[in-house]
């Protein structure tokens, strides 16, 4: 795979990860603010199904099945031809449809900057802020051990 193609795939995957982790409400709000187009042909879904979550024995050993999670997916085609996909935890069908359209728009070189700046970047920044806050809250509960000095010396 050429370098550019690999970079594009990594960026597209990162955008999909951001969309999957964001709430449907945030996506709808930013979508309207950015004035992104939402007309697209639905090729599949939005439909809800199950994904079986796997862990590893001991954390890093052989895989085993832990249980299921609800996942909603959608596939859309833009009037310009790009096909976009979304798979996201939960049962939010509107979110899946919009995220699939966002994925399709992202693949259109003429639209990518608009999608990144108007939708993905603000969502990512909100997620990062939330993660940093969570990390700092957890860090405040870190145990600082100290040694009691006993005796004269």
């Amino acid at each position: 795979m050429r370098g550019q193609e690999a970079r594009d795939q990594a960026e597209r995957k990162a955008a999909m990860a951001t969309l999957a982790q964001s709430s449907g409400d945030d996506i709808v709000r930013l979508w309207n603010e950015a004035g992104l187009p939402s007309d697209a042909e639905l090729l599949r879904g939005p439909e809800t199904g199950l994904v079986t979550l796997r862990g590893r024995i001991g954390g890093g050993g052989a895989p085993f099945n832990v249980g299921e999670a609800t996942v909603t997916r959608a596939t859309v085609r833009l009037p310009t031809g790009q096909v976009g996909h979304c798979y996201a935890l939960g049962r939010d069908k509107q979110k899946a449809r919009l995220a699939a359209i966002a994925d399709a728009l992202w693949q259109d070189p003429a639209r990518r900057t608009e999608v990144e700046a108007g939708l993905i970047a603000p969502l990512r920044s909100a997620l990062t802020t939330a993660h940093e806050k969570r990390r700092a809250e957890t860090a405040a509960t870190k145990v600082d051990f100290f040694t009691m000095v006993r005796g004269e010396d």
């Binding site: 199950l50 994904v51 079986t52 954390g59 299921e68 509960t141």
Partner: peptide
């Protein structure tokens, strides 16, 4: 309820070493 839904597949094994740790 679970039995009413189709199955999309099996996830890749989760990596607990890369967890956003809360405890």
């Amino acid at each position: 309820y679970r039995t009413t839904l189709p199955r999309f597949g099996y996830s890749k094994p989760i990596d607990t070493a890369n967890m956003l740790v809360e405890r």
